[in-house]
Design a binder for these strands. Structure first.
Lengths: 222, 222
DNA sequence: ACCGTTTTTTAGGCAAGCCTAAAAAACAAA
DNA sequence: TTTGTTTTTTAGGCTTGCCTAAAAAACGGT
């Protein structure tokens, strides 16, 4: 139906418009897609012609309802494949992105749904990102950055905001994975670093401000 | 490394050169790829430049060792994905080809090997076609067409030579799948149709010459 | 060996998706 | 509001992979 390149642009536009509302700029898209501004302008024309987005010169781009539908389906496929790769094939969570990036473009009406069923209808991917359902609805979860969490309140790690292999491997080495229970013991005013207790390992450690800004948590429930 | 289009040509050349030896002609390739002769000539030049094939004008094309390696790896990926789709996702054997056609182009050094392990190292795909191993070795099996089988000798169905949905669905309706035990009761001289006994269902049926030419069997063992 | 037919290649063109360099518009700031 | 800077678009060009029409080579039969 649509080319891989078109699909990638749609996904990027969805991502950027979820970050902040209003139209997405050519420059932001070029950065996100690792390409040049003229290439973006080219593609925006095409997407506009195909009614996937509304594009106004010197203003920016927004997805149409159909554009949102296609982009959401892509995110769904991407994240389901990531679950498959980690849970069924045993890949590490820092290794699955590139494969999922290719697998998400495989076109077939039934494939996603069967895969979803095979995986047990997961609602979040290996990085804690929400997986939209077949109707395009996103699961909601009250999550916040660890950096915005109060000292003393116990939380569970439910996601990462930085998907880089470097950060994920740092977490692996440190023993912090999804589901880890943390409590902030102290916030250092000087550099905003945190002393936290990691319940699973019954030990304390220091997390930099940067790390605290890359971890999503939600209140721990008994 | 290589484009999907290049890979598809390599696979087609491998397929045609396995059917009969000597070089593959432009016309045969055009028919196999459902494209035109000039497009084939174009691509053969490119493959030749990349050392994947040796191409001589007005003579034909042959794969180099590297071309064989790439094409074999593709067949491996294609057939492993077909096993995945039928065994894990429950797709019918007449539905998996198009999906596997896309999945086979997903590039990743470890993916195939992990998939192979996950599937339990299958040696044949859902249609009974051999799956080359990681080193490019093909499993051997002494198989023959049902049409070439003697009256009276019990055989097992181990493959199909016609992969069309129409034929596969005919087999489903008739109750003949891989592993079915057949014995030819009588060969009708007039039209070469066969009266056979289907052991699983304990019933007799008539198979046309065309069907008998599309079924691979091997001698049944106790 | 010649001639008509078939096959293959050449020539030229098109769309997608990218690029660089240059022009134009928008923005910001004095 | 005018000017300098940043952002975006336009212009033109490239490769890949496809196409049709025309030319050239190979084939087959007498």
């Amino acid at each position: 139906m649509y080319t891989s390149s078109e699909e990638n642009y749609l996904k990027a536009i969805l991502k950027l418009s979820q970050k902040e509302d209003g139209p997405v700029s050519t420059g932001a898209l070029a950065a996100e897609m690792q390409t040049t501004a003229p290439s973006v302008t080219d593609m925006l024309r095409r997407l506009s012609e195909k009614q996937l987005a509304t594009y106004e010169k010197y203003y920016g781009v927004q997805l149409t309802a159909e554009g949102v539908r296609v982009a959401t389906a892509l995110v769904r496929r991407h994240r389901l494949w990531e679950v498959f790769l980690t849970q069924k094939l045993g890949f590490a969570w820092d290794a699955v992105h590139d494969m999922a990036e290719q697998l998400e473009h495989v076109q077939h009406p039934e494939l996603v749904e069967r895969l979803d069923a095979f995986l047990g209808y997961p609602r979040f991917d290996p990085h804690g990102d929400p997986i939209p359902d077949a109707k395009g609805q996103w699961p909601q979860r009250q999550r916040q950055l660890l950096s915005a969490t109060a000292v003393g309140s116990p939380v569970v790690v439910v996601g990462v905001d930085d998907h880089s292999a470097a950060f994920l491997q740092y977490l692996d080495r440190t023993g912090i994975g999804l589901g880890a229970h943390l409590t902030i013991l102290e916030r250092i005013e000087y550099d905003h670093s945190l002393n936290v207790r990691l319940l699973e390992q019954n030990r304390d450690l220091t997390l930099s401000d940067k790390v605290a800004h890359s971890l999503f948590v939600e209140p721990a429930r008994e």
